[in-house]
Every structure is written in structure tokens, then in C-alpha cells.
Nucleic acid binder design. Sequence first.
DNA 1: TTGAAAGCGCTAACAA
DNA 2: TTGTTAGCGCTTTCAA
Lengths: 346, 346
Amino acid sequence: MSESAPRPTLEAVAARAGVSRATVSRVVNGSDGVREPLAERVRRAVDELGYVPNQAARSLVTRRHDAVAVIVAEPETRVFADPFFARQLRGISKELTAHDNQLVLLLTEDRDDHARVARYLAGGHVDGALVFSLHVDDPLPGLIQRAGLPTVFGGRPHWNGGEDGVRYVDTDNRGGARDAVRHLLGLGRRRIAHITGALDQTSAVDRLDGFRDVMADPDPALVEEGDFTAASGERAMRALLARRPDLDAVFAGNDLMAAGALRALREHGRRVPDDVAVVGFDDMLPIAEQTEPPLTTVRQDIEEMGRLMARLLLRDLDRGTAPAESDGTGPSGVVLPVTLVRRDSA
Amino acid sequence: MSESAPRPTLEAVAARAGVSRATVSRVVNGSDGVREPLAERVRRAVDELGYVPNQAARSLVTRRHDAVAVIVAEPETRVFADPFFARQLRGISKELTAHDNQLVLLLTEDRDDHARVARYLAGGHVDGALVFSLHVDDPLPGLIQRAGLPTVFGGRPHWNGGEDGVRYVDTDNRGGARDAVRHLLGLGRRRIAHITGALDQTSAVDRLDGFRDVMADPDPALVEEGDFTAASGERAMRALLARRPDLDAVFAGNDLMAAGALRALREHGRRVPDDVAVVGFDDMLPIAEQTEPPLTTVRQDIEEMGRLMARLLLRDLDRGTAPAESDGTGPSGVVLPVTLVRRDSA
DNA sequence: TTGAAAGCGCTAACAA
DNA sequence: TTGTTAGCGCTTTCAA
């Protein structure tokens, strides 16, 4: 640091206003019980000195940090391929800053990262955590639980149905999948295939379940597993075409895979939607609108999901409620609605 | 918080190991000067108690936070439309965590946000700042300067050429643009148009300059301003076609605009690359590879850019150097190389 | 309503 | 090499 003037302390403000530190603290923190003429004097001193409270000192005594960790566990794949992530972050950021909380971002990739994250959470830097993109074998939830931090998950956790007070926000994946398939049926399609997402994520499983809800007893040859990437969609589509060249529709687990499927279909000379109708999921604009033809897809409000996660967490924090005690104090799982957006692919 | 056991303090560890607090502190912080048998005893006590230092207490005395603010100033547009942002963040995150620093993310949109950010930076929560996506009229740099925080900018700041010790990392936008246009010339194209990015950002200006470097004295009718979005690319392409129906190539300021241009060209029945060759910029995979045809484009290593920004900042922090004093202590502007990636569009 | 004073958990002189 | 001690800047009883 350079020789810039040292930041003014409470002490300095108190001296200038001719009051005690305690009084300044009260004014700064908005607790009433300071009479008007005095309070005004303090406020002026604060302005004149450009006083900003030292957060470290404050945290030391309050044990609050007004900061929330956002943990994104996604090795390479999806997060960085589509704008999903940025959207969610923005929703979270808006809600947090509206409540004067900071967003500490923790990106994890390797196993090594987990130790680091665990240490960080245990270090008491943040008041709570928001967690994304869990896979079935992820050790993260355990680590977080041990740190005893209030937590809200993005997406239904796989280890339970949300009945034990674990907080999460999810999209209506199953309902959206049903809508998509029903739409295809309404178009007169009967041999409808499904390209699933990575089945170690609940979103992919739920979408598959929705597909099965409507298709009753689908030919197993009409289901192919992907992993949410465009490449996997392309590969899956080829496999499906090889097995069931007579298929007349595809419901892809997300838009990226739908885009891949479109390529495979084009390569095989199938016209979309004439020969094969295609529906995606997510409605990621830069993808869904740019494909040829533009995608009919299931829209979810990603930003709202982020906002809601933050809101739920902040509510718990205000209550001073630890995760284990939160039963009955509010919904533990919130599911956001989706809507089918019709474009040209189906 | 629930009645979870209070976290052990230095004091507790000291008691258990039968030493003083100072000794424990030394061991924990890895300063030598503690003899082996003792050090080992301390380490065991730390493990047994699961001791993790209280960061607030530490910061209070060290005035270090081991945290860096990442400020992204982008109202709506680009950041959330392409995966640029996520990539850069990942690069930053990797470098920061490798040096045990935390990433505090500040997303700004409105003017209101600036006050908040200023307050936050002044509050002394972070040791430095990384700043992105500045536009010419942005008040942010001033606010940051006033907070006296070491800062590294992503992209060349518009207010100077980098001669006064302002640290930044940029892509070789001008050189990349030259490569793109030369490539088109090499293909025998002569009536080459350019769709610019938002000209209140230096990256867009530099790319335009590169275009002009090679085209010498281009027909003004061959240049149209966009804003880095796909929609603007589409619109710009239409305008160009209307003015110069004889054009035989387009260099778009980024891939998203190139994708938009492709749509406009298709709509007008122009074949790519036969009738019109198209080159983009960025090489954002999910876009550049998915277009029809796949894009020839200028690749920049976004993740490396993020990593480098973090590295530069950390170096300044280690030196305890404030931005104003940093002249001559290292490069103030670093420019990363680009490479032309050939696909099918040119 | 205001002030005095104790202490949050840690580091860093300084002494031993 | 190890321990003692004085704060870092703030909030929060408790007394006045």
C-alpha cells in the first residue's frame, strides 16, 4: 500500500463529532436511541471524514459476514458451454446485493478443490452457501453439512426428495418434459425419441421420467443417453437414427443437445420439422434462436431460479436458523414453472 | 446458528499443546523459528481440535484479506449472451485459488450499483480488483482509483494507451483483425465488409483499426456498426447487402455477430463461403462450431487472459505496490496473441 | 439517551 | 527459540 491517508476509524469520527464511539456506532448501524441533534452531528462527521466501517473488525464481534458463498461444481462441461451459469449468477447477485450481501464465488473442478472449499467454509468467511450442479457422487454436500452452514441447493439434490428440510430450488423438469412430449403427440408424431442429459444429475432423470409419464411404455430403442453437450446430442441422434430410422420426433434433454441432433438430422438428409420434429429444453436464447430451424423448446427462468435461491438463503440467515432446524419453517423445496416456447422445429 | 460447538480458537490450541498463542500462530502461519518437537505437538493439537483460523481476526491486524474483487460492468448485453464471461472467470478463479485468494464477484448494471461498489471497495474487504468490460463513459475506474486499490483491467482502457502504469491485459485485437482480413484477401476477395462491435469499447475500435490497416482506404459503405449481439450482426449484414450487393466477404467483430450475419446472408440467398466469405472473432466454441457453415474465426485465449490478469494483480499485491507507484516495476499492459482458426465459412 | 470499558481472535513487537 | 503483551476497529453490556 502507498502512503495514502489511513482510513478514518470510529474513534476519529467520535472525536470529530464530540461524542463517544458507542454513539457513532449506533448511528452508523441505524439503531435508534440517539437523539436527533446528536445523530445529525455524527452523520456530518462521517461524511466529512469519508468514514467506512471496517468489516473485519465488525465481523470479529458480530460473527456475521454479510457474504454468501456460491459454489459451482462442474468440471469443464456444461457450465462453460452455455450461458446458464451467467444467468443464474446474475439472479443471485441481484438478490444478494439488494440485501447488502457479497457474493463469494467458489469454482471447483478437481478433488483437490474440495479440501480447499471445505477449509474455506469452515473458516467462517461466509454466512451461508448456494450450491449448484451436483452429481451423484459429489462429496460436497457432506463437507458443507459438516461446516454447519445454511445452504440452498440449485436443482433437487439426488439424495432425497426434499422431505427432510434440505432447501433447494428446482425447475419443473418433469412437467416440462411432459409438455414437450405432449406437444409432439399433438403434432401427430408417434415414434418419439428422447436424448437424455447426464443421468447422474436429477434434472436429466426428471426429464426422462416426464418423457416416460406420457409415452407410457416407450421402446427402449427410442431412448439414448447424452451428457448435455452438443457433441453428445449429435452422437445420440446418430445412434437413434441407426436403430429406429422410422422415428418422427425427438425430445432432447437440453438445447445444446438439440442443436447437435439437428446437425445429425441434416447430415442424414432429414428435414426438420417435416420428417422429424425436434424439441429442446432450457430456451437458452443464443442457442435456441440461432439453430436452423430455430428451436421449439421448454423455457425455464434461470435468473429467477438464482434469485429465489438467494432469497431463501437470506431468509434463513435472518432467522438465524441452521439447516438442521429449518423443518417446518418454510418450504424446503421450491419448484419453478416452465413454459413451452414454439418456434419452427416442432 | 444452532448450538454447534463454538469453533476452537488459537488459545484453545495453545492450551492443548501446552505452548503460548504466539507459538501456535507461528506454526499455523508457517513462519520458521519453532523447533521440531514443539511444532509437531502444535500441529497435532490443531488437527485434534479441527482448528481453522478466524479470518476476520487475522485481517483486522494484518490488513490483508486474501480476497480480490472481480467487477463486471455489463448491462444485460454481451456478458450473458456468450460464454466469454464464464471462461474468464474460470481463468481468474484458477489463479486466485492457487494462491489462496478468494474471488468476490461484483456484477454491476445500474448507476446505483456504482455507489455500492465504491462503498464496498472503500470498505477494505479486498486487496485488489480485476475489472472488465469498461465502456467509455464508465465512472468505475475513477471510483476504484479513489479507493486506492491495486487494479488490473481486462481489455485496454480507453483513457490511455497504457503508458502511465495502468495495468491491463488485452487480446491482440488489431493484429487479429489484420489476420482475418488478410486471410480474406488471400482467398481472392476484394469487396470486404466489416461489422464492428460496440465502438465505445476499445476491443471494437482496435478491430476496426486492424481492418483499416489492411484495407487501406475502405469504402465507408462497407463498414457497419453493430454492438456484439447476434441481432445487431443480422441487422448490419442486411444494411451492408442493401448498400453493396456486390460484397464478397465480411469480417464480423465477433462470432455472435457473424452468426447473425450468416442468417441474413442465408435469407438473401447468398451461399457461404461461395458467394460471401465470413470470418468471426473470439472462437466461442458453442457458437463458432454450431453455425452453418462452421465459422472461420480469430481465436483468443479467454481463460488465459483471466489467469494473467489475476497473476499480474497478485504480483503487485505481493510487492505491496499501490497502482500509482507501479511504474517501471513490470509491464503495465500485456497483449495476448491470437490465431486464425479455419473452418468452412472462409 | 449517552458514555465507559470489556473483549471478539489474532499478529507482531519486544523481552526473556 | 519461546512467551508476554499490546493493540487491530468494532459492538455491546452495563452504569451513569
